[in-house]
Design a protein around this nucleic acid. Structure first.
Length: 450
RNA sequence: GCGCCCGUAGCUCAGCUGGAUAGAGCGACGGUUUCCUAAACCGUAGGUCAAAGGUUCAAAUCCUUUCGGGCGCACCA
């Protein structure tokens, strides 16, 4: 089992690519919970014409700054400027393609610049992954497969699938009502489809996966359909075990986000803002709390993660600061708060929880609803796995917390009635466990106090 | 033009492998703290489930068409 996400390189980490990592991470955890071995691969977009574009931009407008001090923002600006200028001057695109061709054929200058740009953005990505605490088992970029592309193309040719059309090397997919899959441009350099095919072959050999899951935006649907079809045509019996788990776009009210146009929300800014607001709320509600810093981080970042995962992934998401930074109602903090309350009761109870209780004491409406809810946890996880849908876990946790809070409000857990207390504390502990496990699957912490 | 996704209360969404009066949250209004954290709970108001046909004992849910929005459709990823 293997899950991949695909952050485009040479760009500032913004909201949109983070969805891929967050969804991929959650799906990975869901399958692990069910007992599968899951390898999370970060498929870095570190190759391709975009680097040609960056090199052109750098040489034209970037060289006045010593490139040692370049930041991702600088790279981003160059990238944006390239696309602005390219609209007026189409010759720039040709220059970029030429530079990528040089890069692919091993040109020293191109390679040095590429290496440098790559390091800058990789560092930036790592910073975000550290904040989100997303772990990948491997960081393997497209460039890694560059050496294998030749063999892959040879294999495809041997199968008689490749042909030349308009000077490019393609696999004709006309019979399947799809545009052709491009393997080589007319200047002989490769495209991402070529590298994806090579990568798939490599992964099959290396991991022998049961299933390969690509967590990538829905705008690439056609690409995956094409490339999976090519795998099938080559004759790989595992072609139908590759799935594209797509998700909707991240947009602003007035249009889509675009790295090329510089219209993005920086994830780092958002995370910092969320943590800052939580810190203030803690100061107001629970100033004597220990580990304030850690808790603020767990909740602030958790709020962003939850907000990203809680709607069905196929929907486009309209980004709205006020909405993401609202911490009441159906939000991450609400779940974590519920969890903290339960921990608080258990602390106050002070003894170990035992299962030798009188179950017939758990009989009020609110109690029964909660118990029934808890019982659904395993089937919810299975359904989430079946549909590659972390939002099911989010909705479920909202449900459980709603039931718990109604129960909490209507019935006192700790009382003089020893047997009733034991029974209810057992239920409290079970609920606590379900919430904690659920949050962990989503990639969130469950602080015991907040 | 072709393909895929979306269209459910003012807003954000759940429900959609068919089943009883369509559910939450936010926002609005009104309540609840001598009591385990009020980041909570309870109540009120608010919906011809985009529209029209069809299948069915039964449709928000399945099929067809239309409308509206998004995305994609050969040398970007």
């Amino acid at each position: 089992m293997l899950s991949t996400s695909l952050p485009k390189h040479c760009q500032t980490p913004c909201r949109s690519p983070s969805r891929s990592a967050l969804i991929g991470n959650a799906i990975c955890n869901i399958y692990k919970t069910l007992g599968y071995t899951c390898v999370g691969i970060n498929h870095l977009g570190d190759w391709g014409t975009q680097f040609g574009q960056l090199i052109v931009a750098y040489k034209k407008w970037g060289s006045e700054n010593a490139h040692k001090s370049y930041t991702v923002t600088d790279l981003n600006n160059l990238y944006v400027r390239f696309h602005q200028e390219a609209e007026k001057n189409s010759g720039l695109e040709d220059e970029a393609r030429a530079w990528f061709k040089k890069l692919e054929s091993g040109d020293t200058e191109a390679k040095e610049l590429w290496q440098h740009f790559k390091e800058i953005s990789l560092k930036e990505f790592q910073k975000i992954y550290d904040m989100l605490e997303i772990h990948f088992d491997a960081f393997v970029g497209e460039s890694f497969y560059n050496t294998m592309v030749e063999d892959t193309i040879t294999r495809i040719k041997e199968k008689g699938l490749a042909k030349v059309s308009e000077q490019a090397l393609i696999v004709d997919l006309e019979p399947y009502h799809m545009p052709p899959c491009l393997l080589r441009k007319k200047d002989d350099s490769t495209l991402y489809a070529t590298r994806d095919i090579a990568a798939a072959e490599y992964r099959k050999k290396t991991y022998d996966f049961d299933k390969m899951i690509y967590v990538v935006g829905s705008e690439q649907k056609l690409h995956f359909n094409q490339f999976f079809k090519v795998l099938e045509l080559i004759g790989y019996d595992w072609a139908n075990r590759c799935v594209h788990v797509d998700f909707g776009l991240m947009k602003f009210k007035d249009g889509k986000m675009s790295t090329r146009k510089g219209k993005v929300v920086l994830l780092e800014d958002l995370l910092i803002e969320a943590v800052e607001r939580i810190r203030k709320i803690i100061e107001g509600k629970n100033p004597s709390l220990e580990n304030k810093e850690t808790v603020a981080r767990d909740i602030g970042i958790g709020a962003i993660i939850f907000a990203d995962l809680c709607t069905k992934r196929s929907k486009d998401v309209i980004f709205d600061w006020d909405e993401v930074l609202n911490f009441e109602g159906e939000t991450g903090p609400y779940i974590q708060y519920t969890h903290a309350r339960l921990c608080s009761i258990l602390r106050k109870f002070g003894r170990s929880v035992t299962a030798d209780i009188q179950f017939e004491l758990l009989k009020e409406d609110e109690t029964i609803i909660l118990i029934k809810n808890l019982g659904q946890f395993p089937s919810v996880i299975m359904k989430a796995a079946e549909f590659y849908e972390p939002s099911l876990i989010c909705n479920y946790l909202i449900d459980v917390c709603g039931s718990l809070n109604s129960f909490y409000n209507a019935h006192r857990v700790l009382s003089d009635n020893e047997e009733l207390t034991k029974a209810r504390i057992f239920l409290v502990d079970a609920t606590r466990q379900v919430i904690k496990n659920g949050l962990n699957i989503l990639g969130m912490h469950a602080p015991e106090q907040m």
